[in-house]
Write a protein that binds this DNA or RNA. Structure first.
Length: 893
RNA sequence: GGGCGGGUAGCUCAGAUGGCUAGAGCGCCUCGUUUACACCGAGGAGGCCGGGGGUUCGAGCCCCUCCCCGCCCACCA
């Protein structure tokens, strides 16, 4: 018998087992392996990333799924890889360059890219190695990278094809510009935060002041300087330097007389007109809106409708250019905001500045305030793609788990704008467009190396390549056996936070190019938060490092803690103490295993004896095991990790350890070899099943125990590839469950009696018992005696009334104990009096209920019956209590 | 501004189709050296199930209403 150390020590077990699995090739799958294909592709973490709790949860779930499917005999593959993460990675290397006192422009494009690649080779992808510590059974031989050669080929194919289909176009549009990253961003790379800003009201004076009747239009205001004009408001005062119109609502009577009127720009030698456009909300502010076509998306659209001038006032670092005039040129946009207000005030045109709460867009990478800016970029037209994806989701070809994520997802698809895919950075897939000497544009699968042709400088949004992931990892556009076997993939596991960034685009592009959904199921788990539901962040100081957890408590405990908090549709709270609790469970399991292994005497899990030969407690355990097994399977199918964990946890701890193991100790040590052998068979069978069911959640401790239990040699003989058990509902036995519940209840009541009367467990005393089923009690007398720590149990048809005896009621009967010398009579009398009062109150309640005619006539029969039984029980309990009281009083005399 | 989750023990959460005495883990209190485990065992205290109204014999669960919290989406200056 191999020795198991006393307390479970994950560090002594986990690394060796992991290497053993790896060496045996158990992580690897081939397309022609046996079994129905099952595949998961990892949401590729940024190559710059290191493992945080979110990754730990996401990958633990994937690992649990893939391990279970592998055990179920599927040809299961989990493809790992990383994302080149354009801006994020470029930022990392740029920071290094800054520390060296240089920058990428000084280095030049080619040298810079070499530098990034070198960084990637030495420091990148570290996160995948960290996943191994968690026990991730990914097929490491299949590791891919969104920017490797094969994936780049897929990217180019998709770009060129979409361009040929007219779905990719180049155009001058208003885009989100990050002045720090010097690049365009897509809409979803902008994060909106509510901030208290300011709303500055000021007046554009009418160009022609003479002869204007101030009462000719209600919308006319007089500025502090006395001039007549139109009041407007803005949160970004500097943008007035690029205003080219004022818009009012067509039906707003206050302004009807002013349609077409010209106002004068106070700082520039130009005038512009008042236009009527239904976009304007007459209720807001003055009802007149200043229009800055080059720096506001709405204004840009209005400009299109009215053919307005578009005046770009800012360079790509957010500094105002000379077009705004000497006074403001060269100022940063935020500094210019104050300068403009000052200047307006000097001219007597500023009306007032008030606080104003509004949403401000920030760069999701560097948190800099985004500037809407007119720019020539590449776009993907999304409408048709989005409709195709929405249709597939509605048809159920891909389903969300939990289903509540479906509606928001579809709603998002409906309101999609075109996707700006070009980025003004260097690290990424370069746009396959070339510009000829005559200004011609060619988009091409092959590099164009003709004289005079230059390639577009920009690269693609990182998500452009990651959207291809579910098929690019398998070698698309080449028709590989992998693609044939494992695409579409089975389940995508991800937080709901990237449904828009990533899930939507995979769906769209996959349907467009392959006609298939990329995955059958999207399992959206929650986001990991601290124990009070607060987001983990460095500034709150509540970040938990999963690698620390693995180091301190082990991978199994870390996994269990994450999964048991992961209920469908809910975020995942996590505290370090909870991982400690999970570790205790691993230890419990280890110790039950240790107990079993020390006593199984070579018994291997196998056939069970016929039910008729088994003891009550055996049949009870097997019946419970089947229920637990079925419930566990159902919870796995529902991706309900909390229920999987809770079900197995309670079975192992409360039923297997606390009752079954205690119950069979006597048989194992006794002199009936057949009785001992039956207990060993049941124990071995149960342990085997539980270890299999628990393996996806806690792979290490289960594997270690299972090998010892079964004598498996490791390597290919591994729990990792053992068969997933099938429940055998033939073992369900309601009689056994009911009968054993009676035994449990009696034992528990005796424990309670001890505890309440200060009778130590070591004090043995004789007990007389009677009940509805005396045969059962007689049959289980030995077991009851040992579990309750009795001296002796006498099963009687009826308990004779004697002085000094106290009654213990339990479900199914009553027991009597001689109190003399056993307990403190006065304390017990006081307690019983209180108890009796409580019982009487409860009895009154039930009596009242049964006296209610409506209840008796309208409630279902079984409910009424139950209340009647309850009343009888309460009456009997009260009678027993009174008996005890009089016994005690007799004792005191 | 629009959607979606939530509010049950000190904390974090379970509580199918309304129906036994509302549960668990952690924390707290008492007791315990029962030969797998003190990373343990036994017992216990602690709940106007967010407020109000309604339906019903009966509501944590269904309906209405209000309050509070969290998240996502959004081009009102």
């Amino acid at each position: 018998m191999p020795e198991l150390s006393k307390a479970y020590d994950p560090a002594a077990v986990e690394p060796d087992l992991y290497e053993d699995w790896r060496a045996a090739g158990l992580f690897h799958a081939e397309p022609d392996d046996d079994g129905e294909p099952f595949s998961i592709v990892i949401p590729p973490p940024n190559v710059t990333g290191s493992l945080h709790v979110g990754h730990a949860l996401d990958n633990t779930i994937q690992d649990a799924i893939i391990r279970r499917e592998r055990m179920r005999g599927k040809n299961a593959v989990w493809v790992p890889g990383t994302d080149h993460a354009g801006i994020a990675t470029q930022n990392v290397v740029e920071k290094q360059l800054a520390a060296e006192g240089t920058d990428r422009h000084e280095l030049g494009r080619e040298a810079f890219l070499e530098r990034v690649w070198a960084w990637k080779e030495t420091s990148g992808g570290h996160i995948l190695r960290q996943l191994e510590k968690l026990g991730a059974s990914a097929d490491w031989a299949r590791e891919v990278f969104t920017f490797d050669e094969k994936r780049s080929e897929a990217v180019r194919e998709v770009f060129v094809a979409l361009h040929e289909q007219g779905l990719i176009y180049r155009g001058e549009r208003l885009i989100n510009w990050c002045i720090r990253c010097h690049t365009a961003l897509s809409d979803i790379e902008v994060e909106h935060e509510d901030e208290v800003g300011e709303l500055a009201h000021f007046v554009y004076p009418l160009a022609e002041q003479d002869g204007i009747d101030p009462t000719s239009a209600e919308g006319l205001v007089r500025a502090p300087d006395g001039s007549l004009g139109i009041a407007v408001a803005t949160t970004r005062a500097e943008t007035m330097l690029g205003d080219t119109a004022i818009a009012v609502h067509p039906d707003d009577d206050r302004y009807t007389a002013l349609h077409g009127a010209e106002v004068r720009h106070p700082f520039q030698h130009r005038t512009f007109a008042v236009v009527a456009d239904a976009y304007v909300d007459p209720e807001f502010g003055s009802g007149a809106v200043k229009i800055t076509p080059a720096h506001d998306p709405n204004d840009f659209e209005i400009a299109g409708r009215h053919d307005l001038d578009v005046l770009d006032i800012m360079d790509d670092t957010g500094v105002l250019t000379e077009v705004v005039g000497e006074r403001f040129a060269g100022a940063d946009r935020l500094a210019a905001r104050d300068l403009v207000k000052e200047a307006l005030a000097e001219l007597g045109l500023l009306l007032r500045v008030e606080d104003h709460e509004h949403a401000v867009g920030h760069c999701s990478r560097c948190n800099t305030i985004i500037e809407p800016r007119l720019s020539l970029q590449w776009f993907v037209a999304m409408r048709e793609l989005a409709d195709t994806a929405a249709e597939a989701v509605r048809a159920g070809r891909t389903r969300f788990v939990p289903a509540s994520r479906t509606q928001p997802f579809l709603a998002w698809l409906e309101n999609l704008h075109d996707w700006c895919i070009s980025r003004q950075i260097w690290w990424g897939h370069r746009i396959p467009a070339w510009y000829g000497p005559g200004g011609e544009i060619r988009v091409s699968r092959e590099d164009i190396e003709e004289e005079g042709w230059v390639q577009d400088e920009d690269v693609l949004d990182t998500w452009f390549s990651s959207q291809l992931w579910p098929f690019s990892v398998f070698g698309w556009p080449e028709e590989t056996p992998e693609l044939e076997t494992w695409f579409p993939t089975s389940t995508l596991v991800t937080g709901y936070d990237i449904n828009t960034f990533w899930v939507s685009r995979m769906l769209m592009i996959s349907l467009w190019f392959t006609g298939e959904v990329p995955f059958r199921v999207v399992h959206n788990h929650g986001l990991v938060r601290d124990e009070h539901g607060k987001k983990m962040s460095k500034s709150f100081g509540n970040v938990i490092d999963p690698l620390d957890l693995v180091g301190t408590y082990g991978a199994d405990a870390t996994r269990l803690a994450l999964l048991r908090s992961s209920a469908p549709g809910a975020d995942v709270p996590l505290a370090e103490e909870w991982v400690e609790g999970a570790k205790r469970f691993a230890n419990k399991l280890w110790n039950v295993g240790g107990f079993a292994l020390a006593r199984l005497d070579g018994t291997r899990p196998g056939e069970l004896p016929p039910a008729g030969d088994l003891d009550l407690v055996d049949r009870w355990l097997l019946s419970r095991l089947q229920s637990v097994h079925a419930a566990t399977d159902a919870a796995y199918e529902d991706y309900d990790w909390a229920t999987v964990c809770r079900t197995l946890y309670h079975f192992v701890w409360d039923e297997l350890a606390d009752w079954y193991v205690e119950a069979i100790k006597g048989r194992l040590a006794g002199d009936d070899p057949d009785a001992a052998a039956r207990a060993r068979q049941v124990l071995a069978f149960t342990a085997d099943t539980v270890l299999r069911l628990l393996h996806p959640v806690m792979p290490f401790v289960t594997e270690a125990l299972w090998r010892t239990l079964t004598g498996a040699a490791g390597g290919a003989e591994s729990l990792m590839v053992a068969a997933w058990p099938e429940p055998d509902l033939g073992w369900r036995d309601e009689d056994a469950e009911r009968d054993f519940a009676t035994v449990q209840d009696l034992v528990t009541e005796v424990h309670r009696f001890r505890s309440q009367n200060g009778v130590a467990p070591s004090v043995r005393f004789p007990l007389e018992v009677t009940g509805e089923d005396t045969a059962l009690l007689r049959d289980q007398a030995g077991l009851i005696t040992s579990l309750a720590g009795l001296q002796d149990l006498a099963v009687l048809p009826e308990i004779p009334e004697r002085e000094g005896m106290s009654t213990i009621r339990f479900r199914g009967g009553e027991a009597a104990v001689q109190l003399a010398g056993l307990i403190d009579v006065d304390a017990e009398l006081a307690r019983l009096t209180k108890e009796l009062a409580r019982l009487t109150a409860e009895l009154d309640r039930v009596d009242g209920k049964l006296a209610n005619e409506s209840f008796v006539t309208r409630a279902p029969g079984d409910v009424v019956q139950r209340e009647r039984e309850r009343r009888e029980e309460l009456r009997a309990d009260a009678a027993a209590l009174r008996e005890r009281v009089s016994s005690l009083e007799a004792l005191r005399r």
